[in-house]
């Protein structure tokens, strides 16, 4: 599971190793990636909202 999370975060950042990609595609199931991706997006939204509130106060 940790593997999928690492990959999704790498995707948000935009950089990924070939080795990692090969392992993700061989082992991981697409459903996992989409789910973790949405959760990561929600977390990102939360973080940025908190950051904005902090900056605005």
């Amino acid at each position: 599971m940790w593997q999928v999370i690492k990959s999704v975060l790498a995707a948000f950042f935009g950089v990924q190793k070939e080795r990692q990609r090969r392992r993700d595609f061989e082992q991981g199931r697409p459903g996992h990636f989409i789910l973790v991706g949405l959760v990561a997006a929600a977390v990102l939204v939360l973080l940025v909202v908190l950051l904005a509130r902090l900056a605005a106060s």
């Binding site: 790498a10 995707a11 990924q16 990609r21």
Partner: peptide, 19 residues
Amino acid sequence: FGYASMVYATASIAILSFL
């Protein structure tokens, strides 16, 4: 150069573009 990065970055854009 960086085929993997391209694939992953494109996939992340699919989600980030909604925010």
